[in-house]
């Protein structure tokens, strides 16, 4: 049995009398206590898919199950055993940290005490502020509180919609560590994120773009499957370099990446020399070209470009 399963889910919205396809024939299987990442740019359909799976939204067609329960028929049972953390902070800002936790515990007919062990390591970090109103917490603390509230009824499946958007790098790292810890408690976690670097932490990831999934695999496998040769190029004028590379028809794709440009060439023999000549003709100085090993982000950029 899969913890989460989606079979042919489609959803479209009507916007100004125009049909906008948000999801197109999504098929997905997520295993028990897997940390599964849903990676895609803004507007790719991540939130719609999560909302359909946690019974907040009805799909136009297709079926699915969470914990073996049908997402349409058994929505009440599903709601009792899933935790959901929406992308936007959605706890009561005028209630204190403790009151929020208390309220959501009681909503699920449980108490903080009963499941304290599960949230302990997370909640302890914000416990010193438990009499503070949730609205007055910092971004990172808000997120910890939201996670605590989503976990207070010991859900078997946890949906996290872009939990790390707008959070600083340190808190992001901490947050992913917490998710890793939760896995040990046999909780299946579906987390969506626009940040590709976070994919490497997940057990498996799905790439979503324009409402379609086009790659579901282990992050390491995705990197291993990457066949094209990847080059890093650096010159004195980085901005002009990108422009020039993009306008060169021998370049398949080119992305700025830190202090260099990651480039994949179309079938070109002796790429390094050819590229050097081209760039010299464009009057670039201090040209450095070197082959590099692809990271997960390079794979995504490449795959996304290919599918688009």
């Amino acid at each position: 049995m899969f913890a989460i399963e989606a079979i042919g889910i489609s959803k479209s919205y009507r916007f100004k009398k125009q049909e906008v396809k948000a999801l197109h024939d999504i098929n997905l299987q997520i295993l028990q206590s897997e940390l599964f990442g849903l990676i895609g740019p803004d507007g790719s359909g991540k939130t719609s898919l999560i909302r359909i799976l946690n019974t907040l939204l009805l799909a136009d067609s297709g079926t699915g199950s969470v914990d073996g329960l049908d997402i349409v028929k058994d929505f009440e049972a599903i709601r009792r055993r899933v935790g959901y953390m929406p992308g936007r902070f959605s706890l009561y800002t005028d209630l204190t940290v403790e009151e929020n936790l208390q309220f959501f515990a009681s909503v699920f007919n449980t108490t903080i005490k009963e499941n304290y062990s599960l949230i302990k390591s997370i909640y302890q970090q914000i416990e010193p502020f438990k009499h503070r109103r949730a609205g007055q917490l910092s971004g990172g603390m808000k997120q910890k509180l939201a996670l605590s509230c989503a976990l207070i009824h010991r859900p078997s499946v946890l949906f996290l919609d872009e939990p790390t958007t707008g959070v600083d790098a340190v808190s992001r790292k901490e947050f992913w560590d917490m998710l890793k810890e939760l896995q040990a408690n046999e909780i299946t976690i579906l987390v969506s994120t626009p940040y590709m670097d976070e994919a490497a932490i997940c057990d498996r990831v799905a790439l979503i773009q324009d409402g379609s999934l086009f790659k579901v695999d282990k992050p390491t496998q995705i990197v291993d499957d990457f066949t094209p040769k990847l080059f890093g190029i650096r010159t004195k004028e980085m901005f002009r370099l990108i422009e020039d590379l993009k306008s060169w028809n021998s370049v398949h794709s080119c992305f700025a990446f830190g202090d260099s440009c990651h480039v994949i060439f179309k079938d070109l023999n002796n790429e390094v020399a050819a590229c050097k000549t081209y760039l010299m003709a464009k009057q670039h100085q201090d040209i450095e070209i070197f082959q590099i090993k692809a990271g997960i982000e390079d794979c995504f950029m490449y795959l996304m470009k290919k599918s688009a």
């Binding site: 907040l56 709601r79 959901y84 929406p86 959605s90 706890l91 009561y92």
Partner: peptide, 13 residues
């Protein structure tokens, strides 16, 4: 407006 209804909706209330 605050989005808190989302948390209520996803709960068994």
């Amino acid at each position: 407006e605050l989005g808190t209804i989302e948390q209520i909706n996803v709960s068994p209330i």
